[in-house]
């Protein structure tokens, strides 16, 4: 199964980017130990020069990780015809035990990568590298995630056999199971939808307050994360029903199918981007007090907050549109 073009591309991408993150983390540990901006030694100078290379490496590696998440899901969707019993990406991901863990690891890596890139951008705005230790410390924390993502992905593809009978999404996303997806699917529709709109409203209130007054950054980061979970729950428990116009089909992956006009991409992309920007803006605002960053960072955080609000607005618009235009009436 490994000789599949997309699989080869994903493995190549993961090999290169993991290697780059590894190099970055090794360099990061050196920075944590020896970085001293006031020193004019050759060692310090070399380190300063090397930061350019490493941050380019990481920018490259992390952007590729973001793209590979998209490619991974899209590929799972396309490969589903090759598996007996699979009707969408769920079947492909369920073909062995590594499929879903890889996806979850990739999503975690996506958010970490996005956050790192934002911190890196902020740090590059100041002349005295104020966030350098923070940034590389975080990178060392990302390394195990990146390594395990690469390992999981490799195991998934190496163990992918087409003669396995996999299960379809209607089996996994059903209220009758005893796992977390079943809990989500089994949630009362009215409650899930209500919770979703309440979270959405709270997110906008907190976001606008943060945007206008520059207060409450931690709350905003938290609101972004909470909204993400509430949204995914709502998609599984109720929004999917409206899209499929079917009262019992809860799959969050069938949304990516051409039959539903690829609406899944239109829903998930702004949600992921909005959440990443929101948590990033909230986190970065903690560094506004640093003198060399004060001027540039305030504007950057403002822009991130606005972009996050707009992304979530687009997401909310698409979801509400899908509910409004659906022929299904649940209430």
């Amino acid at each position: 199964m490994i000789f599949h073009p997309v699989i080869l591309a994903l493995l190549l991408g993961s090999l290169i980017s993991t290697l780059m993150i590894l190099i970055g983390a090794v360099f990061g540990s050196q920075i944590l130990r020896q970085w001293n901006l006031s020193s004019g030694s050759q060692k310090q100078l070399n380190m300063e020069r090397r930061t350019y290379l490493i941050s380019t490496f990481l920018m490259f590696a992390l952007i590729s990780e973001l793209l590979s998440l998209l490619l991974y899901v899209y590929n799972a969707e396309q490969m589903s015809v090759q598996f007996v019993g699979a009707m969408c990406a769920v079947g492909t991901l369920n073909a062995n035990i590594y499929g879903f863990p890889t996806l979850i690891a990739k999503i975690i890596l996506f958010f970490c990568a996005a956050l790192w890139l934002m911190i890196n951008h902020a740090d590059n705005q100041a002349h005295d590298y104020p966030l350098i230790r923070w940034k590389y410390g975080f990178l060392i924390a990302i390394l195990p995630i990146a390594l395990s993502t690469a390992g999981l992905q490799l195991s998934y593809f190496l163990n992918l056999e087409t003669d396995v009978i996999t299960s379809c999404c209607s089996k996994l996303f059903t209220p009758d199971g005893d796992n977390v997806t079943a809990e989500m699917a089994g949630l009362d529709e009215a409650f899930a939808l209500g919770l979703f709109y309440v979270c959405l409203a709270l997110f906008f209130i907190i976001g606008l307050r943060f945007y206008l007054t520059k207060h409450g950054h931690r709350l905003f980061a938290l609101a972004s994360a909470v909204l993400f979970i509430a949204s995914i729950t709502a998609v599984i428990s109720v929004i999917s029903l409206y899209v499929y116009e079917h009262p019992h089909h809860h799959c969050p992956f069938c949304l990516l199918k051409p039959e539903y006009n690829y609406i899944g991409y239109a829903i998930y992309l702004p949600l992921f981007v909005g959440t990443a920007l929101g948590t990033g803006a909230g986190t970065l605002a903690s560094f506004v007090q640093i003198p060399s960053l004060q001027e540039t960072l305030t504007g950057f955080v403002q822009r991130l907050t606005l972009a996050s609000l707009i992304s979530i607005l687009i997401f909310a618009g698409i979801v509400s549109g899908a509910i409004y235009l659906s022929a299904l009436r649940l209430f």
Binding site: P5, A9, G13, S64, N75, Q78
Partner: peptide, 15 residues
């Protein structure tokens, strides 16, 4: 096929 274009990009431009 967009998937194919993306795969090819990963194979060539990326390395």
């Amino acid at each position: 096929d967009p998937l194919q274009v993306m795969t090819l990009l990963f194979f060539t431009v990326f390395p």
